[in-house]
């Protein structure tokens, strides 16, 4: 259980998130500028918030980002262009890139798992967008952190590829028993991965429901504003 009670202020934006998140995938929905990414950045330790953040009774707030039990996939720039695919995964285990034989096997296993074994010596420049994000997922696999944060990492991919990546995220979440938070601006993505949805509005958690609310005939009152009239007709 990830318990969040966090406050954050930046100029005119005052956020206060208060929610408990259980194992499995939770999708963060909400309009642009409502504070979805802010929540993720607070959890990841990239912004300093006030309040409480606990995971299995352990307080995370005072920990720097790299000591939190968290892996993050960013929207872009997840890979270092000067490192090979292998090294980009390996850096998740050791910042100095000095690996034991055991760790090397682990990296190879993760590359196998993400179907990148033949790309190990390539540089990120030579990869497609989908492959690049798969390398980042391979890094998540080797890091084995119990919480996974995804900040719209697939928004630049075409629909079929995006779907494939979401399934991969879902598999990884189930297999490793992760608590996964996925920021998305597409309600369809939430329906695809299942689990629960969080609706973020004005820096507050407006709703925390099972994903089935998105496919109801009559939209949930809290979601109706976000989904809008046009969206409902495509989701009968």
């Amino acid at each position: 259980m990830l318990e969040i009670n966090l406050q954050y202020d930046w100029e005119n934006f005052h956020a206060h998130y208060c929610v408990g998140i259980s194992k499995g995938v939770t999708t963060l929905l909400g309009g642009s500028g409502e504070g979805k990414s802010t929540l993720l950045h607070l959890l990841g330790g990239f912004l300093d918030g006030r309040g409480e953040l606990r995971f299995h009774e352990e307080s995370l707030l005072s920990l720097p980002a790299y000591e939190r039990p968290i892996s993050t996939l960013f929207q872009s720039d997840n890979l270092f262009p000067q490192l090979t695919v292998f090294d980009n995964v390996a850096i998740g285990l050791s910042p100095s890139l000095a690996l034991t034989a055991d760790q090397k096997d682990k990296v190879l296993w993760a590359l196998e798992k993400t179907q990148l074994a033949d790309k190990a010596d390539r540089f990120p420049q030579a990869l497609s967008g989908g492959q690049a994000q798969r390398v980042a997922i391979a890094r998540v696999l080797v890091r084995r952190k119990p919480i996974l944060l995804l900040d719209e990492p697939f928004s630049a991919l075409d629909p079929a590829l995006r779907e494939e990546m979401l399934y991969l995220v879902n598999d990884v979440t189930l297999e490793l028993g992760l608590t996964t938070l996925l920021v998305s601006h597409l309600p369809q993505e939430a329906s695809l991965v299942g689990g629960r949805v969080l609706l973020i509005e004005h820096g507050r958690v407006a709703a925390h429901e099972s994903v089935s609310v998105l496919s109801q005939d009559v939209a949930h009152p809290l979601f109706s504003h976000y989904l809008g009239a046009s969206n409902r007709s495509t989701n009968p």
Partner: peptide, 9 residues
Amino acid sequence: FRNLYLSLG
């Protein structure tokens, strides 16, 4: 890369 450096330590 600030956040990436930070998250990977």
